[in-house]
Nucleic acid binder design. Structure first.
Length: 675
RNA sequence: GGCGAUGUAGCUCAGUUGGUUAGAGCAGUGGAAUCAUAAUCCAUUGGUCCGGGGUUCGAAUCCCUGCAUCGCUACCA
């Protein structure tokens, strides 16, 4: 059989925070399973990854903590790497984008595109801080909002009125790092001319008929709205310097250089194994299949921008062969949110569990075609039932029985009944199915087929009831146990990509002279024709007790109590007195046209009738509002929202998805002051 | 509002190109067995396949439409 060649990558994790289960389910576990499977097949494959170490969020964090960015990056690089090790991920190389080899090749990539005419320049005005001597990214500036005149607008958006703003529109802008006033200055940035690649990209994508449906849908949507030039440089000091004469203080924009990390990490790998030219076998070989595992949020970059960047090079880099993007993983019915700490952090998980329960649950419940839900109770149940009860117990009962009755061996029978031969064939077809599932990224189905085989094993064991036949007919008993042994041998190898360390422990009980990987998938094709010596029998899967699961659920709920309270500056009473807070009564309500969240309310405040626009349509029905007495800011400057006048602002308490109006405890006339 | 998806048993989901009587796991109920991690195995209850139209000899599957939920996006917070 011809050897197939693969190059597998997972999205580079951002070195600005820890990993949670959503990351794993989306990009890392599916890739690891795929790579282990390919290694079992004996194919030529390497698995490449590393941390993504540039970008504004890292810069900001570094400034806030008054440490160099590299320190932040190194810290998370270490943490991420150790978490991956704890989960048994088999990267061939795990690099980082702040290393010299990456700088070199990124600059080369940029230069080639530039030279080949794929890069344009545009000049625009931006804020520049003379004190810090640098241009300020949007989030580095605060000032007065040009629309509502709130004093705390950020450079990209005003939290008070919600409007998106351009930083240069800010009135009296302030640099958040030094507190000085920035000035407006012209700056030039470089843009990738994506439209130039349009035709080539379309043609290429159309040839990808085998790609997952969700991926194709996503790309088509993108192409339909048309490709635009995209800025690929930024005015920052943390990043890969732009390799052009007059580009001091400019770095290559992080989304442009991050995927190049796949290449620089491969180069690093080649150097590490002492064959510095070998990376070229991976990036220039037309027969090599390049597979990017990513989450769905990354689809446009990997299927449009990144291929365009590769197309624009001098050398013939291979393009992605497949991009099996996964959907998102929710947690206990809600979207994972790092800022609200609604997440299961992998490093915390590893304090209480080993790798395999999580690997198994995330594989069996992988968000392959649609978003999926991680539920702790289900995690426990799935693991306890499938692995401990069905698979673990099957292995245990067979090995113990055989150990006791067949002289510490799984016997090799003198003959096989027709029925049993048929069963061997059935096992073989399960094996073919599972192989096909792995190959086409259908890990859920692979899991199911494997556990079904273990189930079958239990049925078979019960039906043949060797514990009775052993007394009367040792020969047929030996046959039955042999079949069970064959099932176990197959199970061990087939499940290895998903739960490698458990599979290896099982393998060790069977005393083969080769490791699972050396034995390989094809080792299964060879019928076992010697007795198998049974080693020390140990419990494969300890059940997860209720209290540990309870602890996790409690921890999650506890985490979610507002850990990150944004602190606002204290104000004096005079400032507070400026607010005219009032009770108002809603006298009419209707939906605003062309807006899902907005309601137009008429309210009575004292002698006045005012109109306000409020974003509460998702939380309150029109008919439930009329007659309600609510709290408003009466003297907020009027504004126009969606073409409708809004003359005051309604106050409501908000917690994530929840929203509630503030209603007086006792009845009180509308117009009453709130103090 | 635009784009995309989803809706099948109490729960989680399979159902490939339309083809007998719509399936699995978990939970429930009844039973068997005692080799085994009180694990296993067998039987069984449970469904207007979201509603309504249409195409067809035949629709969970294809088309139209309505409703509900979710994601992205816009308005907004």
């Amino acid at each position: 059989m011809a050897i197939e060649k693969y190059l597998v990558t997972s999205a580079l994790p951002y070195a600005n925070g820890d990993l949670h289960i959503g990351h794993l389910a989306g990009a890392y576990l599916p890739a690891d399973i795929f790579v282990r499977f390919q290694k079992l097949l004996g194919n030529d494959v390497i698995y490449i990854c590393g941390t993504d170490e540039h970008g504004t969020p890292i810069s900001i964090k570094a400034d806030q903590k008054k440490v160099p960015p590299r320190k932040i990056v190194d810290k998370y690089h270490r943490r991420i790497k150790s978490v991956f090790a704890g989960l048994n991920f088999c990267f061939d190389n795990f690099s980082g984008t702040a290393r010299p080899v990456h700088y070199k090749i990124s600059r080369q990539f940029f230069t080639n595109l530039y030279k080949n005419g794929y890069i344009t320049t545009h000049t625009n005005k931006q804020l520049y801080c003379p004190h810090c001597k640098r241009f300020l990214p949007d989030r580095y500036v605060e000032g007065e909002c040009p629309f509502c005149h709130s004093k705390e607008a950020r450079g990209d958006q005003c939290d008070a009125c919600g409007k998106l703003i351009d930083a240069i529109q800010l009135i009296n802008p302030v640099c958040i790092t030094c507190g000085h006033n920035p000035i407006i200055k012209e700056t030039t940035n470089w843009f990738l001319n994506l439209p130039k690649f349009s035709d080539k990209l379309k043609k290429w994508i159309e040839s990808k008929t085998e790609w997952k449906d969700n991926v194709k849908k996503f790309i088509l949507g993108w192409l339909k709205s048309g490709l635009k030039e995209r800025a690929i440089t930024r005015d920052l000091d943390w990043g890969v310097p732009v390799p052009i004469e007059n580009a001091k203080g400019k770095v290559i924009y992080v989304w442009f250089e991050a995927p190049i990390g796949y290449i620089s990490s491969t180069i690093e790998w080649a150097e590490r194994i002492g064959q510095p030219e070998k990376w070229k076998d991976y990036w220039f070989d037309k027969d090599r299949k390049l597979i990017h595992f990513i989450g769905k949020d990354n689809i446009p970059f990997h299927t449009i921008i990144w291929p365009a960047v590769l197309m624009g090079q001098d050398e013939d880099y291979i393009l992605p062969y497949d991009v099996p993007a996964n959907e998102f993983l929710n947690l206990e019915g809600r979207r994972i949110s790092t800022s609200r700490n609604w997440a299961v952090w992998v490093n915390e998980y590893l304090e209480d569990f080993s790798a395999d329960p999580l690997r198994y649950y995330l594989a069996a419940n992988a968000p392959e075609n649609k978003d999926c839900d991680f539920v702790w109770k289900e995690f426990q149940e799935k693991y306890n039932t499938d692995l401990a009860n069905i698979l673990g117990n099957f292995v245990n009962r067979v090995l113990k029985f055989s150990d006791k009755n067949f002289n510490h061996e799984i016997p090799f029978p003198t003959k096989l009944s027709a029925k049993n031969k048929e069963i061997l064939e059935d096992i073989s077809s399960v094996r073919d199915n599972v192989k096909q599932f792995y190959k086409t990224f259908k890990v859920r189905k692979a899991c199911k087929s494997i556990i079904d085989l273990a189930r079958f094993g239990n049925q078979y064991f019960d039906k043949t009831s060797p514990w009775t036949t052993i007394k009367s007919n040792p020969d047929t008993t030996a046959e039955a146990i042999y079949i069970c042994g064959e099932i176990i041998r197959n199970l061990a190898i087939m499940i290895y990509p998903i739960i490698p360390s458990s599979a290896e422990r099982l393998w060790n009980m069977l005393n083969f002279d080769k490791s699972i990987l050396e034995y390989g998938w094809d080792g299964l094709l060879v019928e076992q024709n010697n007795p198998i010596k049974i080693g020390k029998i140990e419990t494969l899967f300890e059940k997860i007790p209720d209290d540990i699961i309870e602890k996790q659920i409690q921890k999650l709920k506890g985490n979610n109590i507002m850990t990150k309270e944004e602190s606002k500056e204290t104000i004096d009473f005079e400032t507070f007195k400026k607010l005219d807070l009032r009770i108002a009564e809603i006298i009419s309500a209707e939906k605003v046209k062309n807006a899902d969240k907005l309601l137009k309310l008429k309210i009575a405040v004292g002698d006045n009738i005012k109109q306000i626009i409020a974003g509460i349509a998702k939380h309150y029905a029109v008919e439930d509002l009329i007659g309600k007495k609510i709290l408003i800011v009466n003297n907020l400057k009027p504004t126009i929202i969606k073409g409708e006048k809004s003359e005051a602002m309604l106050l409501a308490a908000v917690d994530g998805e929840k929203l509630t109006l503030l209603i007086p405890d006792k009845d009180i006339p509308e117009g009453s002051k709130v103090l």
